[in-house]
Nucleic acid binder design. Structure first.
Lengths: 125, 125
DNA sequence: ACCGTATTCAACCTGACGGTTGACAACGGG
DNA sequence: CCCGTTGTCAACCGTCAGGTTGAATACGGT
C-alpha cells in the first residue's frame, strides 16, 4: 500500500520534472540557477517576456521540486534543488542500459549467425 | 554558424525529448520497449485507449528521436533508440554537478565561519 | 506614514495536447 | 481475388500551458 503510493508519487514527480524541463526558457533558468541563486527579476532580465510569465515558470519549477524560493525582504531568491535530477537520470539510465544491453545481445547473436553461415559455406564449397 | 545551428538543433531535440517523456503512458511505452521491440497493437494492449491514440504517442516518440518504426508486412515494429537518452543525461548531469559543487563550496564556507565564530567566542570568554 | 520596488494573483486569450470516431491504405492468408 | 488484420490519416472536442494585462500584496528606505 505505502509502496504503491510511493511509486505513484514518484511517477507524478517524474511527470512534472520532465514537463518542466521540456520548456527551453525553464531549462535556461535551471542552467543559470546551477551557478548561482537569483531573484525573479534577475532571472527575468534576459527574456523577452513579462515578469509574471517568469513567475509562472518558477511556480512550475517549484511544483516539480526542482527549485525552492526563500524570502529576503521583498525579494524572493530562487534556489536550485538538485535531488529530483537524480530521479530523472536514474529513470533514463535504467532503460538506456537495458536497451543497450539488449542491442549487444542481438549483435552477438547476429555475429554468431554469420559465423555459422560462413562455416556452412566453407563446408559446402 | 554551423556551430550555432548545431546548438539550436540540440535545444530542439531536448525540448521534444523531455516533452515526450513527460507523459506517463509514453514513459511506460519506452520502459517496455527497452526490453523488447513491439508492434503498435502489442504496445496498445495494456492501455485503455484507442489504437489511434497509441499511434499518436508513437509519432511523438518518433519525432523526439527516441524510437523508430520499421515495417514487417502490415505490422510496424517499434524499436527504441537510446542515443537521445545520452543527450538528456548529459544535460541533467552537467547542471546537477555544477549545483552540487556550489553547495559543497557554500557548506565549506559556512563551516569556516562557524569555526571563526567559536574561536572568537573562546577568545572573548 | 508614504512611496517605490519586487513579486504574485486573477482574468482572459490562443494554440497545442491527448483523446475520440470514422474512413482509408497496405498487406498476407485462404 | 477478396477479406481480415494492422495501422495511419483527418476532423473534431475538451483541457491545459504559456502568454498577456491590470490590480493587489509585502516590504524597505526616507
Amino acid at each position: 500500500m505505502c509502496l504503491i503510493n510511493h511509486m505513484v508519487e514518484q511517477e507524478d514527480r517524474l511527470n512534472k520534472a520532465f514537463a518542466a524541463l521540456a520548456d527551453p526558457t525553464r531549462r535556461d533558468m535551471v542552467a543559470r540557477l546551477a551557478s548561482a541563486d537569483a531573484t525573479v527579476g534577475e532571472l527575468a532580465a534576459p527574456y523577452d517576456v513579462s515578469l509574471q510569465a517568469v513567475s509562472k515558470h518558477l511556480k512550475v519549477l517549484e511544483d516539480a521540486g526542482l527549485v525552492h524560493r526563500s524570502r529576503d525582504a521583498q525579494r524572493r531568491p530562487v534556489h536550485l534543488d538538485a535531488e529530483v535530477f537524480d530521479l530523472m537520470t536514474k529513470w533514463i539510465e535504467r532503460y538506456r542500459r537495458e536497451a543497450e544491453e539488449r542491442f549487444r545481445r542481438i549483435d552477438r547473436l547476429l555475429a554468431e549467425m554469420n559465423q555459422d553461415q560462413t562455416e556452412e559455406e566453407r563446408g559446402a564449397s
